[in-house]
Amino acid sequence: MISHLRLKTTKTLSPSICMQVDDNGFEFVVINHKNFDAAFSLHGAHLVHFQTKQQAPLIYLSKSTPYNHSKAIRGGVPICWPWFGNTEESKSKNLPSHGLARISQWTLANINETGVGVDIEFSLTANAETKAIWDHDFSLTLNASLSDQIELSLITNNTSNEDFSYGGALHTYLHVADSGHCSVEGLAPSYKDSLDNGKRKSSDQILNISESVDSIYDAGEQQIRVNDKSNQRTITINNEGNDSVVVWNPWVEIAKKFVDMPDDGYKTMLCIESAITSKQGVLIKAGQSHTLKTVIK
């Protein structure tokens, strides 16, 4: 799924992990483990690829997305933080949609490779650039544990002397063979329809994808199941620390408006997001932390 990128190796980090860059110096951590292939961008600590051996990719990445340090990557698992979408405050101040984390340069803090998989840690600490967007002291840690599954834990540490609240999401783009032949189970019985002014609606036990969907469900059941019928597989998602599950697919007309997604990109992606979307967010007291987590298999 990253074979379309022109990358060259700059540093070997372990037997299966190396740093690679594209022609513009955009940095990636590339993993070719015996059990899976994966890649992260240091821009956004962004998982852009994951695929176990002899299986279809689990993560979708748009081949049309640009790679520069001012824009978010379309696909993968963007980290939306410290807010989800566009809040009234962010719109009034012309602040970036989905916050600052996905457009910030993170640091590779630690790696550990075993015969089973890879544990990798990225970090982001408040600095002048982040404070120009969100004026709080914090440290973010993304812990990724990759094996036959993806486990992502986003830890928000409040390093300031005052409490703050945050929202966000692990905005997972799943790769599917055909979104029109996918169904989703395990969602809560009601949702807010973002395509209908956030109107609260009842949901069926099984969601079939057949048109544009942008729905915010309550956290609901422990496990969500995506039936990727054309790939003859079921993808399971387990979330923690979230108050919502966002299901999104732009479908035909909206996908055509994206310059960073092919017109038919909607056919092979479906977002199931571990999210914090409530207006009050999650309160983190000074010196405390909170973890938002998703496990995908």
Rank of each mutant, 00 (worst) to 15 (best):
Q223L: 11
I209Y: 01
Q232P: 01
D214F: 04
D228Y: 10
N238D: 15
K229F: 05
D218C: 07
I235Q: 02
S230C: 08
I237E: 06
N227I: 05
Y217F: 15
R200C: 11
S230D: 12
G220N: 14
R233S: 08
S202P: 00
D218P: 04
D228V: 06
D218N: 14
N231A: 14
E221C: 09
V226K: 00
T234K: 12
L207Q: 11
R233N: 06
Q232L: 11
I224S: 01
N239Q: 15
S202C: 07
S202F: 08
Q222Y: 06
G198N: 03
S212V: 09
E221R: 09
D218S: 14
D218V: 05
I206R: 13
K229N: 08
I216K: 07
V213W: 00
S202T: 15
V213H: 02
N208Y: 10
Q232S: 09
V226R: 00
I224D: 01
I224H: 02
K201Y: 07
D218Q: 13
Q222I: 11
V213E: 04
S215A: 12
I224Y: 02
G198T: 04
I224R: 09
N238M: 14
N227M: 02
G198R: 03
S203G: 15
V213N: 04
D218L: 13
Q232N: 12
G220L: 06
G220D: 06
D214V: 06
Y217K: 03
N197D: 13
S215L: 07
Y217G: 03
R225K: 12
S210T: 12
I235N: 01
Y217D: 06
R233L: 06
D228P: 09
S202R: 09
S203V: 07
I235C: 02
G198W: 00
K199P: 04
N208F: 07
K199D: 05
L207G: 05
I209G: 01
T234R: 10
R225A: 10
N239H: 12
Q222V: 10
D228G: 06
E211P: 05
G198F: 01
E221S: 13
S210F: 04
D228S: 05
N208I: 08
S230T: 14
S230L: 12
Q205D: 15
I216R: 07
D214I: 05
I237M: 15
N231V: 05
D214R: 05
V226P: 00
Y217T: 03
I206A: 02
G220I: 02
R233K: 13
E211A: 10
T236I: 14
K201M: 13
L207P: 06
N227G: 00
T236N: 14
S203I: 00
Q222H: 07
D214Y: 03
K229T: 08
A219V: 08
I235D: 00
R200D: 11
D218Y: 11
S202A: 15
S210Q: 11
N197M: 09
D228F: 08
N239R: 15
R225Y: 04
S215D: 08
A219H: 03
I206C: 12
I206M: 04
I235R: 02
G220C: 10
S212H: 09
S212A: 13
D204P: 10
D228N: 06
Q223G: 00
N239E: 11
K229G: 01
L207V: 11
Q223I: 13
I216S: 07
S212M: 12
N197L: 07
E221V: 07
K201V: 09
G198E: 04
K201H: 09
K201G: 00
N239P: 03
I209N: 03
